Amino acid sequence: MSNSSIHPTSIIEQGAKIGNRVSIGPFCHVGSEAVIGDDAVLISHVVIMGPTTLGSGSKVYPNAILGGDPQNTKHKGGHTTLIIGKNCVIREGVTMHRGTDGSLGVTTVGDNCMFLAYAHVAHDCIIGDNVTFSNNVMIGGHVTVGNNVIIGGGAAIHQFTRVGHHAFIGGLAALAHDLIPYGMAIGNHAYLGGLNIVGMKRSGMARPEIHNLRHAVRMLFDRTKPIKLRAEDVRVAFAESAAVADLIGFITTDTKRAYCTPPLDSAIEISDSDDKS
Rank of each mutant, 00 (worst) to 15 (best):
V106C: 10
G50V: 00
I126K: 14
R202V: 05
V244H: 02
L172I: 07
G171Q: 03
T9Y: 00
M114G: 01
R235F: 09
G187L: 05
N87L: 02
Y61E: 07
A174F: 03
H123W: 00
D39L: 01
S134C: 14
R230M: 11
L66G: 03
A34D: 05
A119I: 03
H97T: 09
G110P: 07
G77Q: 05
S32Q: 14
S103Q: 11
L116V: 12
S103V: 02
N212E: 12
D69S: 07
K17R: 15
N20V: 14
V131W: 05
V106G: 00
I210G: 02
A156S: 15
H215G: 04
G199H: 08
G141Q: 06
V149N: 01
H189E: 12
S134V: 15
L264H: 14
I180H: 01
G199R: 08
V109G: 04
C125M: 06
Y182F: 15
V47C: 11
H166V: 08
S44Q: 10
R223C: 05
G68C: 09
L213D: 05
T108F: 03
G57C: 03
V163K: 02
A242Y: 01
V41Y: 09
G99W: 11
G67D: 03
H166D: 12
E232P: 06
D111F: 07
T100P: 03
G199E: 06
E13W: 07
N135A: 11
P26A: 04
I157Q: 01
S271E: 12
A122I: 08
P8N: 12
M49V: 10
M96T: 05
G204P: 02
P208G: 04
T9L: 07
I157W: 02
I90H: 04
A190P: 13
G141V: 04
H158W: 04
A155D: 03
I169A: 07
G55W: 12
T132D: 01
I197A: 07
H166R: 09
R202M: 05
E269D: 14
Q159I: 06
D275S: 05
S103N: 12
G194P: 06
E13C: 08
G170M: 10
I157T: 09
C125P: 11
A40F: 01
D38N: 14
G77D: 11
P263M: 12
I12R: 00
D272L: 10
G37N: 11
V109I: 15
G193M: 07
G128A: 11
P262A: 09
H97M: 01
E269G: 12
S44M: 08
K228Y: 10
L172D: 03
A231Y: 01
T53A: 11
L179T: 03
R214D: 04
S241V: 05
Y191T: 15
A245I: 00
M184Y: 15
A167F: 04
S273F: 11
